[in-house]
Amino acid sequence: MDKGKSKLSLESLIPFYFFGYRISISGFYIWAFIIIVFMLLAGIMVGIVLWTGPVWSKILALILLVGFLGIGFWGIDLARRNELRKLKSCLLALISEKQENRVYFDQADDELGEIGFLLNQVLDLCEQRLFKQRRLMGGISHDLRTPLTIMRGNLEVALLRERTKEEYREVLESNLEEVDRLARLVEELLTISKAEAGDLVMRLEPVRLGQFLSELVKEYQVRAKDKGLDLTINIKDEIVINADKHWLTELFANLIENAIQYSQRGGKLEISLKEREKEAWVEVSDQGVGIPQEELPFIFEPFYRGTQAKTMATKGYGLGLSICKQIAEAHNGTIEVDSRIGPESGTIFKLRLPIR
């Protein structure tokens, strides 16, 4: 139970030992047993007193015995209803957006406890998704506002006075760049949305992964060289997988571009491929600035940009790695990351894909 969340106690458990075995019985059942025994004994005692009398006293004894048992069961039902009212109060609090409330119990010992446990799990899941949705909306709002502000500024300046054709052309070209940025943002958001909904269209075909990676790396050799980086590829095994070439290109292009973007002049980048445990293991490693350990669990979430990305003022929306994860999982694969910062900083993305 997280601190700051209110507790709604359903039951407390009392341990009993039966022939050396520890048995946890909810306090509710203990009190139910005590009530039944007490009312039964009271009924028997009254019955014994009245049974020695005439016939009418015997009938009265039976009526009193049944009445005592009825009162006992009514008390048990009242206690259970009280527990259900507490659960109802929790739900009403949640409806009123007091989402910090949780149903608290020591152990899911009976049906009500299990319901409370499952309810807490549902609430935690909803809270996590709501948090992600709010951050997603915040990220979208921020990334939409920036290009729109630039476009508005360009147009307002252009309208202040008459300008030459060349000046108007510059304004239009600048705005066209911002439109392209918005189009890329929308395209990436659609990709993530389709992937999360399971609607990502996959056109699988046999792909020679070593050849595919070699051709892709050639396209980035010039860019890496211009930045003073040594980009190499190491293929130990030629592997054939079933994959969608379009999405596979998107995945590795994001990883390679990130490696180039966050690496300093003179650094080395390597893409390696090998077969292990009937899987294709691909690693994209760099000697860049690295990622702090506390940020690693979040880097595959949409719109998450780490400290280094903000410090270096790199372009991007924080969607690339989230897309990589979705594409890897759509191919029944996995993607992980190891990173370190300091004198020997660097990052390794590890991709596992099933072999055809």
Rank of each mutant, 00 (worst) to 15 (best):
N101M: 05
D124Q: 00
F68N: 03
I59D: 02
F105L: 02
R181F: 06
L69T: 01
T149V: 15
L78F: 11
F105I: 02
A108W: 01
Q107I: 02
R85I: 02
L125G: 13
N154F: 05
N120H: 09
R163V: 03
G75L: 08
F105P: 08
E178A: 11
L148G: 15
E100G: 15
L123R: 12
E100I: 03
Q107T: 03
C90E: 02
V179P: 03
G70N: 01
R85H: 13
E170V: 09
R135P: 07
L172V: 05
V157K: 04
S89C: 12
L87V: 15
V103K: 01
W74S: 03
V179G: 08
V171E: 00
K86F: 02
F131C: 14
L64F: 04
L112D: 04
I140F: 15
C126V: 07
V157Y: 10
K88M: 06
I63M: 03
I95N: 12
L125E: 13
L118N: 13
E167S: 12
G67A: 00
A79Y: 02
L94Q: 09
N120P: 13
E167Q: 14
Q99R: 08
R81F: 08
D180K: 11
L144R: 00
Q121W: 07
Q133C: 11
V157R: 05
L78W: 11
G116C: 09
Q133M: 00
D77P: 10
W74A: 03
R129N: 12
E114L: 10
L144F: 15
L60S: 14
G116Q: 04
L62I: 01
I140C: 15
R145N: 12
M151G: 09
E178M: 06
L91W: 02
R80F: 11
S96A: 12
Q121Y: 13
E173G: 08
Q121S: 14
Q99N: 09
N154E: 06
L130K: 04
Q121D: 12
I71H: 00
N175W: 07
G138V: 04
N101P: 06
L136D: 07
Y168L: 11
L87R: 00
L136Y: 15
Q133N: 13
Q121K: 12
G67P: 06
L148P: 15
L123Q: 05
R81G: 11
T164C: 12
S89M: 07
E166R: 08
H142V: 04
Q133R: 06
Y168R: 07
F131I: 00
I59P: 05
F73A: 04
E156C: 04
E166A: 14
D109A: 15
L65R: 03
L112Y: 07
L112M: 09
R161K: 08
P147W: 01
E100D: 06
L62D: 07
V157P: 13
E166C: 12
E114A: 14
L130N: 10
Y168C: 08
W74D: 04
G138S: 14
E166K: 00
L119N: 01
E162A: 10
L94A: 12
L64W: 04
L84C: 08
V103S: 02
R129F: 15
C90H: 01
R145Q: 11
T149R: 05
Q133V: 05
L62N: 02
G67K: 01
R145M: 07
K132H: 11
F117W: 13
E114W: 10
N175S: 08
I76D: 07
Y168H: 10
L136V: 08
E111T: 13
L148Y: 15
L84W: 05
G67H: 01
I115Q: 13
N82P: 02
E177C: 05
